[in-house]
Amino acid sequence: MTGVAVVTGASSGIGEATARRLAEDGFEVVVAARRIDRLRRLAGEIGGRAVELDVTDAASVRDFAAGFDRCDLLVNNAGGALGAEPVALSDPAEWERMFAVNVLGTLRVTQALLPLLRAGAGGTIVTVTSTAAAANYEGGGGYSAAKHAEHAFSETLRLELCGQPVRVIEILPGMVRTEEFALNRFAGDAERAAAVYADVDRPLTAGDVAACVSLAVGLPPHVNIDQLVVRPLAQAAQHKVHRGALFHH
């Protein structure tokens, strides 16, 4: 599958890596995020197009979508986590922000581009959620709730589009080490961010997740991967992480 691909949250991390991979796969890639300078550099490197977008702003999404006459692939990647406090101590403002970006942002962008995705031969919607969309953990209440909501969105949309030529795919990454995710979660505390990955043998990279997007999208158009859960070998489950070298026999 080739054509026009839109990647949100493309200024860093998984979004940036996915944009690069899709460009290699032959897509004309539109990279979207708030940090336009980063996007312009990326677009220049991959031969794509950079468009400023705030998924939490309805007018921004509307103006963004008006710039297209074709969209074959949408990768809903914009999102993130804020805070790791227990529910009893959580900041409701952080929960609101996580829902605004992860859930409502995904909803807005999908609604705006859906008419184009349904046109012609059809299209594909990929939403990058998290293993937190399937399992909960202490300190992850707000993020997990937002990702569960994104999962509900994807599953419902797939049901509602049944009979139409649009694939709805959900990618659920486990432990991924990127330059910003944990830093943003812990408000710039580099020590706390580093501790998340301490002694874990090769956490996933953004490129690993991008490869999963490429794999799912590259299958024949009648093949829909409902959910693709991907973790590093050292992480057997959300709550089960091996720290130290992996055993060899």
Score class of each variant (00 low, 15 high):
residue 82 L to P: 00
residue 68 F to E: 03
residue 37 D to N: 11
residue 55 V to A: 15
residue 49 R to W: 05
residue 60 S to T: 12
residue 82 L to G: 01
residue 42 L to F: 10
residue 56 T to L: 06
residue 44 G to H: 05
residue 34 R to A: 04
residue 64 F to V: 03
residue 76 N to G: 07
residue 57 D to R: 10
residue 39 L to R: 02
residue 79 G to H: 07
residue 52 E to W: 00
residue 49 R to V: 12
residue 56 T to P: 05
residue 39 L to N: 03
residue 66 A to F: 00
residue 48 G to M: 06
residue 52 E to Q: 15
residue 38 R to G: 12
residue 58 A to Y: 00
residue 47 G to T: 00
residue 80 G to M: 12
residue 54 D to T: 02
residue 42 L to T: 01
residue 47 G to A: 07
residue 58 A to M: 01
residue 47 G to E: 11
residue 59 A to P: 00
residue 81 A to F: 14
residue 50 A to H: 07
residue 71 C to R: 03
residue 37 D to L: 02
residue 49 R to S: 08
residue 62 R to D: 15
residue 37 D to C: 03
residue 68 F to A: 08
residue 57 D to F: 04
residue 73 L to R: 10
residue 55 V to T: 14
residue 54 D to Y: 13
residue 43 A to R: 03
residue 55 V to C: 15
residue 41 R to E: 13
residue 34 R to N: 01
residue 75 V to N: 06
residue 76 N to I: 04
residue 40 R to G: 00
residue 37 D to M: 02
residue 72 D to M: 13
residue 57 D to K: 11
residue 39 L to S: 05
residue 68 F to H: 11
residue 82 L to C: 02
residue 54 D to G: 02
residue 73 L to N: 08
residue 64 F to L: 08
residue 41 R to W: 00
residue 72 D to V: 02
residue 36 I to T: 06
residue 53 L to N: 05
residue 61 V to M: 14
residue 56 T to N: 06
residue 63 D to T: 10
residue 60 S to H: 13
residue 58 A to L: 13
residue 65 A to P: 14
residue 56 T to W: 05
residue 43 A to K: 03
residue 35 R to F: 04
residue 81 A to W: 15
residue 77 N to C: 10
residue 47 G to V: 00
residue 82 L to K: 15
residue 75 V to P: 03
residue 66 A to V: 00
residue 50 A to C: 04
residue 46 I to H: 11
residue 73 L to C: 12
residue 54 D to W: 13
residue 80 G to K: 12
residue 45 E to L: 15
residue 38 R to I: 01
residue 81 A to S: 15
residue 76 N to R: 09
residue 71 C to Y: 07
residue 69 D to R: 14
residue 51 V to E: 09
residue 78 A to E: 03
residue 48 G to A: 11
residue 55 V to L: 13
residue 81 A to Y: 14
residue 61 V to I: 11
residue 50 A to Q: 07
residue 74 L to W: 06
residue 72 D to Q: 10
residue 70 R to W: 09
residue 44 G to Y: 05
residue 51 V to Q: 13
residue 75 V to L: 13
residue 64 F to Q: 09
residue 78 A to M: 04
residue 72 D to W: 06
residue 67 G to F: 14
residue 57 D to G: 14
residue 43 A to C: 06
residue 78 A to F: 02
residue 40 R to Y: 00
residue 70 R to V: 00
residue 72 D to K: 06
residue 61 V to C: 15
residue 37 D to I: 01
residue 73 L to H: 08
residue 80 G to D: 03
residue 76 N to A: 14
residue 56 T to A: 14
residue 72 D to H: 08
residue 81 A to R: 14
residue 69 D to A: 12
residue 39 L to H: 04
residue 74 L to G: 09
residue 57 D to Y: 04
residue 81 A to H: 09
residue 47 G to N: 08
residue 49 R to T: 13
residue 68 F to N: 06
